[in-house]
Design a protein around this nucleic acid. Structure first.
Lengths: 219, 219
DNA sequence: GCCTGATTCAAACATCCGTTTGAATTAAAT
DNA sequence: ATTTAATTCAAACGGATGTTTGAATCAGGC
């Protein structure tokens, strides 16, 4: 096997281009030109562009989600009867996702891609992501609830939503940090990124719930 | 003026459709069909699709950014020599942006749109946004630094980044909250959304900075 | 060798895209 | 009423898109 498989060469190239420009902005012809394969090969191996998108995401996301659940299960086993500590739950959620940035076979491209997906409004893509996350979401939602006793479910949901936004933005736009602020970003240093993200979101989850603003308050 | 201006009808329709499906996924023909105007009218009034996108964003964002700066200046004047409190800074940043959700002339469409823009990788769009924010970013960045004495600039930058992600995700995907968790979302109740967002992000900004993980740590 | 199924290939398909054109229409000014 | 400018309109432009086709090439089993 001197040269890589056609199928995986399509997947690799598509992943890289999708991450750079987005799904809509990259055409199949862009992909096949860069991958040096025939146009029809895409439909032969995947069936459609939509299916290719799903394949690109699923190839990486499935092992990541598996690792997430395994780490959470391990943490739960180690915690015994006590709930897993909030920071540990977040670590199980973030680390497998950010770790691929340091994987030389993957690189930072997929991170940007997966972050972008969380903001995509394409109905098919959303449905696909929901199906990929159908184990992860309830498991981690329950773990967060357990780690935050006394916090109303509605508040936990909102704060999970905020956390997802911070995570997605960090995944796909971490390079903007340099542009806006001058602070450097090193994709190999994913551990410090995750540590900062955990610091921020854990404190956000634990924040005191301030009372609703009274309608009669002075402007 | 029984029927609205062609130009504003294009803007309104484009805003609604862009918010629903994204900039790339909406064609000019989708817009003119829904707005019931001629195709060439878009180029006559705006010049190009790119320019239309900028016009749609700028129309709403310019007043919002003006209001943000005005509120921040007011808060600074009231605080005198002391720095403006963190929660107040965040309120000046969030409130003008989320308030348009309750404006019957605007509705929740623009919120989704502006949240989406923050995640868009289009180079022209990013340049345009940078130019629209060239006053807001340094002003609020300085206010955050002042409200967080003792926090290293690098940490403030990272946490601003997390905050931007939480904000953007809330703006454009708040409706997903219902889908994922069942928690209801009422666009009229933007005040409680902002209050929750402030609670979360303010606590995140104030979080204790945990030390970097030692490389020799056990796996 | 030959056959069979899997894969690659160039070419074409129909459709959609943003943009341009030039004439028709409307509104305002003289 | 006539001239002038602003606006609308149908039609076409060149090019890009995802997808399909049918023949050519390759692989491995008999």
């Amino acid at each position: 096997m001197v040269k890589t498989d056609t199928k995986t060469r399509i997947l690799d190239t598509a992943e890289r281009l999708f991450a750079q420009k987005g799904f809509d902005a990259v055409s199949l012809r862009n992909i096949i030109a860069s991958a040096k394969v025939n146009l029809a090969a895409v439909h032969y191996h995947f069936g459609s562009k939509q299916a290719l998108v799903h394949a690109v995401i699923g190839r990486r996301l499935r092992p990541i989600n598996g690792e997430r659940l395994a780490k959470l299960a391990e943490a739960r086993a180690k915690a015994g009867r006590r709930p897993v500590k909030l920071e540990r739950v977040l670590e199980c959620l973030f680390l497998p996702l950010f770790r691929v940035q340091a994987d030389p076979k993957v690189g930072p491209a997929f991170s940007r891609l997966i972050g972008r997906v969380l903001f995509d409004r394409n109905a098919n893509l959303q449905k696909f992501m929901m199906s990929e996350l159908d184990e992860v979401i309830p498991q981690f939602s329950a773990a967060l609830d357990a780690a935050l006793p006394g916090l109303a479910k509605e508040e936990t949901d909102w704060r999970s939503h905020f956390m997802a936004g911070a995570m997605a933005h960090t995944l796909c736009n971490a390079d903007l940090l340099a542009k806006f602020t001058g602070t450097q970003f090193d994709p190999r240093g994913y551990e410090s990124t995750v540590r900062r993200l955990i610091d921020f979101t854990a404190a956000g989850f634990r924040a005191k719930v301030s009372p609703p603003t009274r309608p009669g308050k002075k402007k």
